[in-house]
Computed example of a mutant assay.
Amino acid sequence: MNLTDFSVYCPHGPHNFRVATEGPLSDLRLVYKDLYHVAGYPTGAGNPTWLNTHEPAAATSPVLLKLMNAGMQIIGRVQTDELAYSLNGCNIHYGTPVNPAAPDRLPGGSSSGSAVAVARGDADVGLGTDTGGSIRVPACYNGLFGIRPTHGRLSSEHMVPLAPRFDTPGWLCRDAATLERVGAQLFGATPVKTERVDLLWATSLFDLLPEDLCTAIVPIKQQLAACVASLHEWDFAPARLSELNNTFRTLQGREVARTHSAWVSQHPDAFAADIAERFQWASQLTAEDEALAEETCQQWKAEIIARLETACLVIPTTPDLAPLRSASDADLADFRMKLLGLTALAGLAGLPQVHLPLVKVAGVPFGFSIIGKPGSDMQLLALVRLFSDVIGEEKPDEAK
């Protein structure tokens, strides 16, 4: 572990401490994203100008405090993309951390430090946040389990926000059992018994994947079908992804502008060009844009929640393997548009989603996600543990 690797760890800490020496999670090590406040310390939000213009926090995040009080060893504060407004894991000020699972590819963000620290073994749990995919995407890229909980299930108090109507704490682990243990602590619940459930398989979305990824997923579908009550095809028109992408980006952008426009306008040179452009785009959205997007959002939310009342949905988490570190800005922008269509499915409706890293292609991590109805977080975590046990030791041969 190298705490002076500032592409992963934040120089302002705090690092290496415990609040409680005993507790249900005392055997686990934790890193936490640089959006979570720790009383008496500044929060940098991945941006040195933000760090230098904000006072030390007056209180600690209740989510972080709950894990501290459960006995976890706190390894340290880790980096995020600037104000969490990206999915790449690149930070112009601190660098791009190396993805331990695929060093020539991006680590994903905005919970980049959380994912990389866990993937390389520095910690057992990476506490991050998810607004538009910031847990789910780095989980996929780094070969980790990761959960975006039901929106509002966990407190977002004493955190730096991005778009509050979508922001949620989340976490990443190398194994499903640890993911579930942390969930039991944060939700104040006991692990639930796994039950045979009905699955909806998003065939039309898996068909959009490159051929080698489609091939790698086929055995997974067969294995899951053998351990659930039923598996049905989900009738979804892929053309809708663009509409849902635009809907999410508009609603997120209006939230971002409300939350940060005053500070951003006072510090116009504080950000990397792509993120500055994103803030500028958000500031130009209108109330009419938001109203139209809200109508689509509510229609989608009603539709998907009704569909998930008696089943869970399986989708690809990302549209392809993690982009190469050498990818052009244009290619990354195009990839982002495809990616946000997938992450919007759960994000717009505030649904829990868990990524399972049970697929590799030519040694590069991939996987899939399970989405459940609101409040089904512990049921999802139990299901993920079951699927991990069933598939884990019998992973299909990697595609060549």
Rank of each mutant, 00 (worst) to 15 (best):
N52P: 01
T53A: 11
H54T: 15
P56V: 09
P56C: 13
P56H: 11
A57N: 03
A57I: 02
A57L: 04
A58N: 13
A59R: 10
A59K: 10
A59N: 06
T60R: 10
S61D: 02
L64K: 05
L67V: 10
L67Y: 10
M68Q: 15
N69R: 15
A70H: 11
G71D: 07
M72H: 08
I75W: 04
I75L: 13
I75V: 15
G76N: 09
R77Q: 04
R77N: 09
T80W: 04
T80L: 14
D81H: 01
E82N: 04
E82M: 04
L83Y: 04
A84S: 12
Y85E: 01
S86P: 01
L87K: 00
L87G: 00
L87E: 00
L87V: 01
G89C: 04
C90A: 12
C90W: 02
I92Y: 03
Y94C: 03
G95F: 07
G95C: 06
T96Q: 08
P97Y: 07
P100R: 12
A101M: 09
P103H: 14
R105I: 06
R105V: 10
L106D: 02
P107I: 08
P107M: 05
P107E: 03
G108F: 06
G109T: 02
G109Q: 03
S110Y: 03
S110K: 02
S111F: 05
G113M: 07
S114K: 03
A115N: 02
V116I: 12
V116E: 01
A117R: 01
R120W: 08
A123E: 08
A123T: 13
V125L: 15
V125A: 15
G126W: 08
G126T: 09
L127H: 06
L127F: 08
